[in-house]
Design a protein around this nucleic acid. Structure first.
Lengths: 185, 185
DNA sequence: CGGCGTGTTGACAACAATCAAAACTTGTGG
DNA sequence: CCACAAGTTTTGATTGTTGTCAACACGCCG
């Protein structure tokens, strides 16, 4: 865990996030005055790296100054900080999970995300239109993928707008295993 | 400007962002416990809407409770909050500007973003590899687009790794005007 | 019933990924 | 200073994926 937070004095820094299957995506670039290292403050593991893109000069800030903000603030306030933090990491994951890869992969990742955020075994299935707007693809494309997944039994409707999924099979789509099998006789 | 902040008790809310040219992109979905309305706190205009996806129950929080956080906190602390906020809106724009549309549009938006964040008239031009990782396209695709823009004189190299742009012509690419002209004899 | 929104499907065109190769840069050691 | 190696950028040919347009199915509600 990073012991310090830095402000950038000059230069450009990229925030890089790596997917489990190896591909990388830059989720933000940071310049003068931006804070690097905030993401690591809440003890959650740091799943991205800050990498310089050219010569960078930084100013180191002891982390204690930041964490003292929490100590001093009353309970509700730290609560708000936590949620603010949550929104940020959620935005990063949105970029790497839902705006990267082909249509099938994106839909698969969205379904798993919806599944994981639901307490229930089933989850609210958005309209194809909304799915498209989340994934940066067209309504028709998301419809085609969902229809195929339903035919294969990987997605099942349990109510009007609720569905449940076969997580294992979906994972193979994301990991690209199904893309590789044709080469394995 | 929204006078309140809400916590979601149950249901799903989508954060929708509209581009000037009309297309919409959902930049986040929010569920139980998430705070809606934080983005509007710093007085910047709210360029996205929060729209319910199903029946939602919320709990209203007076904005004063949130803003008091700033008054009570010493100067450095509010500074941190501002930057935290900045990171969030930046992440949202990253999704709508750099992960939406075809390769040409994405590159054009990235160049304008780089131009705008630079004090100078020129700006640091990333490697094609990094551009690809920012935009969710391949190295070759970003190279092809940049090469074409250089041939057309829309992008000019002023140093090894610094460039400047013809903002007006780039804007037409984003607005899709060049896509329409073929239909206009 | 009939209209409306949503979902599905297919044919085709547009677009981007992939693979391979050449041109160009940069850095290194002779 | 040159030559060579390594990395980056550019380009072209080809394949695969996605967008577009159009049609139809389905369920819902007045």
């Amino acid at each position: 865990m990073i012991p310090y937070v830095y402000t950038i004095r000059s230069g450009v820094v990229k925030l890089v996030q790596r997917s489990p299957n190896g591909d990388v995506r830059i989720v933000r670039i940071m310049g003068q005055g931006d804070l690097v290292g905030l993401e690591a403050l809440d003890g959650g593991n740091l799943d991205h790296d800050a990498i310089t893109m050219d010569h960078v000069s930084v100013c180191r800030i002891p982390k204690s100054i930041i964490t003292s903000l929490r100590r001093e603030a009353p309970e509700l306030h730290t609560n708000i900080l936590n949620r603010w933090q949550k929104a940020l990491t959620s935005a990063n994951h949105w970029i790497t999970n839902l705006s990267t890869g082909n249509a099938k992969e994106r839909v698969a990742r969205l379904l798993i995300l919806l599944h994981n955020t639901s307490i229930d075994n089933s989850f609210f299935l958005p309209t194809r239109d909304d799915m498209g707007a989340m994934l940066g693809i067209t309504t028709e494309s998301s419809s085609k993928v969902i229809a195929e997944l339903k035919r294969k039994g990987i997605v099942r409707l349990v109510e009007k707008k609720r569905a449940c999924i076969d997580q294992v099979k979906l994972a193979t789509i994301i990991d690209g295993i199904d893309k590789l099998t044709p080469h394995n006789p």
